[in-house]
Design a protein around this nucleic acid. Sequence first.
DNA 1: CCGGACCGACCGACCAGTCGGTCGGTTGTG
DNA 2: CACAACCGACCGACTGGTCGGTCGGTCCGG
Lengths: 212, 212
Amino acid sequence: MAVQRETTRERILVAAESAFADKGYHETLVDDIAGRTSLSKGGFYFHFPSKEDLFFAVIDRLAARLVQRAESASASCQSPLQGVEAALSEVLTTLGRRRRIAKVLLVQGYSMGSAFEKKRVEIFGRFSGVIQDGLDRAVEAGEIAPINTEVVARAWLGAVNEIVVNWVYHGTPTPSEALPVLRTILVGGLERLDADKPETDSPGSDPVATND
Amino acid sequence: MAVQRETTRERILVAAESAFADKGYHETLVDDIAGRTSLSKGGFYFHFPSKEDLFFAVIDRLAARLVQRAESASASCQSPLQGVEAALSEVLTTLGRRRRIAKVLLVQGYSMGSAFEKKRVEIFGRFSGVIQDGLDRAVEAGEIAPINTEVVARAWLGAVNEIVVNWVYHGTPTPSEALPVLRTILVGGLERLDADKPETDSPGSDPVATND
DNA sequence: CCGGACCGACCGACCAGTCGGTCGGTTGTG
DNA sequence: CACAACCGACCGACTGGTCGGTCGGTCCGG
């Protein structure tokens, strides 16, 4: 039997992800999670020191996966701006495929109260860091004009977040429906700056397509 | 003594706004609010049927005020697009002046759990309605090219939301710092569409300034 | 027979909401 | 004007249910 440690821990994380998605932090009881894991409450507390720690672990796992997806999507692109666009699409479509995950990551955390604040800052910081990096490189590469990339990154993240959250609640418009529009207005908002300052020296490749 | 009804109710609302801003829904006790109002718990329950009702009343009040500000800012503009821009600025700067209000309105609600979902949909719907209306009129007026205005409105709202929330937690960048950048990328994202389809018949007045 | 994994009854803090009671003002009555 | 009957606003001790967390114990593989 021994050395089920990681297996069981994983089972708990999976069950918790689902439970938190359904009911939020407060409304999910430790007994619920124990139940879904076919574990007793005591069994659960053998693996996690507290409910709060469990929640953070769930969030961290999700965020890490998503950030990695975004990063690798971005890395497989030629130009920085395309990379940012790809990261954006990746996040949007991934969350769009997994409504429950989106809900845990973007909504349910707040119900933890003040303990969540630090975590939210950290998670959103990771994402906006990825985007900001790409934007900075795009500026350096002369793809877009200089601008406060931190604000832009945040704004994009917020736009994506709102589209996803609204979809989580409303069911419409779906992220994949929204993607082309988002691409147009977000990336387009920067390209215009480029047009203002036409000092680019890109090697003639066609610029980022503005629609699918 | 009689007929303090409204006065006391108002006092409770004000105190609750502040308490919820500080500690969120769950962490704020009815006793806290009673305390801040120099009222007993029983006294409080004379005026509100439940803690939940109180919270909704607080949120509604704040949202109504803010929506009205946005609408009147928008109404005092000449072109629809300028109106949308003005509404955007108004919301951003108003929230930027009142960090606590921003927190109650945009963050703390989630800590109520599922009961808040309907409310969030409603509140954000009100705001995005204002923006969407303006955008629709801007499309009709030929100021911008046709686009899915619902998605755009949501995206803008999300961008503003994220900037404000990030500021609430991080303290930087401040909404007023972010405003010019937001204006550039958001409104700019639409103007570019205009440039693609140069069929406007605006009466020669200079277009919306892209920076202050 | 040791100890890691797990059990589940139990504890106790916590808190929304209740309820019997108080008290100052107002209204009605003679 | 006096006095009673009434009422709206408010008080605060109490309750009842809920849950996170604990702890003494069990079970099984090595």
